[in-house]
Design a binder for these strands. Structure first.
Length: 486
RNA sequence: GGCCCCGUCGUCCAGCGGUCAGGACAUAGCCCUCUCAAGGCUAAGACACGGGUUCGAGUCCCGUCGGGGUCACCA
């Protein structure tokens, strides 16, 4: 067996790529990379009923988006393949035979209905299979199986004693054998269960560190027992805390979007996703909160991993995303907006960079760009009343004053010697002075005239981006609108 | 319910026997300011509880309480 670190992420292709899974992948990736080891992707598709077409592809797409590159997997191959469990059935069967032969497993002929009834009658007390078939003579069981009688293969758990293992984050964990169920290893359809497949594959693929979610802690003793039964040395275990909903239950899509590709569609940057996940349950030595994937890889340490389940905090996540948006060079941000499909069809190319520059520090999600930049692309409809500056709903100017101001604005702009933000602002301020208006009030009129909104990017820089001709046309139009003012 | 894991501001983290218990997000106020942001400053805000151990416990031990996970021929 190889001596270098080998970690894996083992998704089940039963749905969308889960953000919690990406968190586990991130840690597996970081540890393997900083150790000079290898990171493996293995598809755990042993549940035919829950199989979802395309789930594997989406998972790999999500991993690639986050730059969590893998060395071995179903798409890139590798020396320990195949990397899909459905393609390894013969391997599991062979190991099940070994367990049967050594008496560490036995055939069970109990029907699903019987097990369901058994479970119903056990509610509240001791649960688990009652081990009825363990009493069947193995030779007899083999004959029945050969005759085609449907059955499963179960692990023969020692009735007494305890099973222990060391969790790299929590220390030794001891479980009484009597509380461990005779777990099904091979289902009646011939497919292995998770427990069988995970042990065989981790061993055969040379996985040295099993890094997975906390929900697996209680079934780890079953895996330890399996390693023992097969005469193998178990790997090292690290159980990561579960990410929580705000009510502290296990993160679920009922209360939070859990599909990582949803975050992509919303306009979260992969840098921010990775950064945020790296912040959950782990801290940097210098307490820094904004860091790159590479920095995380370099600083990751088991010592700094937390064991308490963190609540997924969308507010902080958005803040971080804003940080990353602001960190991007303007042209890079524009390129991302375009390639990720956030720039609306027909957006004037000559205004894109200018709009992006002004919007950069105002976006928390790329998806907000389209709406926030709408007035760069088109003249927005608005009520004439919006042109009248007010304070707490009370108009500060009469209709006639606003009308006059717009007309003045039009001529000042038409005569502007230079069309740049500084000159435009100076001109507008001079006009305000001449009219005896507070600059802010006049700017409100101009802002609405130019953008159709009360809230916008900095007025004069926006006008510079839009250009003289377009701005004049919009002010002209505003003048027309003031005609409808009461 | 049995078993297992966890328990520092509302949230995320720091603390690894001696700190005014620190930072970040969110919240509030102020500054900057053409609106909104961004940025700066300030404020409020936590060691779940009870026993031990110790000269000294947020830090170590035990119990209680609280939260979570798990008890499938799903992973």
């Amino acid at each position: 067996m190889t001596e270098t670190v080998r970690t894996r992420i083992a998704p089940s292709p039963t749905g969308d790529p889960h953000i919690g899974n990406m968190y586990v992948a991130l840690v597996n990736w970081a540890f393997a990379r900083q150790s000079g080891g290898r990171f493996i992707v293995r598809i755990e598709d042993t549940d035919r009923a829950r199989f979802v077409e395309g789930a594997e592809r989406m998972f790999l797409e999500a991993l690639a988006w986050l730059c969590l590159t893998h060395d071995e997997g179903p798409d890139v191959g590798g020396p320990a393949g195949p990397y899909r469990q459905s393609e390894r059935l013969a391997i599991y069967r062979e190991h099940a035979e070994r367990l049967l032969a050594s008496g560490r497993a036995y055939r069970c002929f109990c029907a699903a209905e019987r097990l369901a009834e058994l479970r119903k009658s056990q509610k509240g007390e001791v649960t688990g299979y009652d081990r009825r078939c363990r009493a069947i003579d193995p030779a007899d069981a083999a004959r029945r199986a050969a005759a085609g009688q449907p059955h499963t293969v179960r692990l023969a758990v020692p009735p007494e004693g305890q099973t222990r293992f060391t969790d790299g984050l929590r220390g030794e964990i001891v479980i009484e054998n009597r509380s461990i169920d005779d777990q099904v290893l091979i289902k009646s359809d011939g497919y292995p269960t998770y427990h069988m497949a995970v042990v065989v594959d981790d061993r055969l693929m040379g996985v040295t560190h099993v890094v997975r979610a906390e929900e697996w802690i209680v079934s780890t003793p079953k895996h330890i027992l399996l390693y023992e039964a097969l005469g193998w040395q178990p790997p090292l275990y690290y159980h990561l805390p579960l990410i929580r909903n705000p009510d502290r239950s296990k993160l679920s899509k009922r209360r939070n979007p859990t599909n990582v590709l949803w975050y992509r569609q919303e306009g979260f940057l992969p840098e921010a996703v990775v950064n945020y996940l790296g912040l959950l349950g782990h801290s940097m030595p210098d307490q820094r909160e904004v860091f790159t994937l590479d920095e995380f890889r370099a600083e990751f340490s088991w010592r700094r991993v937390n064991t308490t389940g963190p609540v997924f905090d969308m507010d902080k996540f958005e803040w971080l995303n804003g940080m990353w948006i602001r960190r991007l060079p303007v042209d890079e941000l524009a390129a991302r907006l375009r390639s990720e499909g956030f720039v609306p069809e027909g957006f004037p190319q000559d205004r894109l960079l200018g709009a992006v520059r002004l919007l950069q520090e105002r976006l928390k999600r790329l998806k907000e760009f389209a709406d926030a930049a709408a007035y760069f692309a088109a003249r927005l409809p608005y009520e004439a009343a919006l042109l009248v500056p007010d304070k707490k709903g009370k108009p500060l100017k009469a209709a006639a004053e606003v009308r006059a101001a717009v007309a003045e604005l039009r001529s000042v702009l038409a005569c502007a010697a230079e069309w740049n933000a500084a000159a435009l602002e100076a001109g507008a301020r001079a006009l305000a002075e001449r009219l005896g208006w507070k600059p802010a009030d006049l700017f409100t009129v101009l802002r609405v005239a130019v953008t159709g909104r009360r809230v916008s990017t900095p007025l004069f820089e926006t006008m510079e981006v839009l250009g003289r001709e377009e701005c004049l046309a919009r002010v002209e139009e505003a003048g027309t609108r003031t005609g409808t003012l009461p």
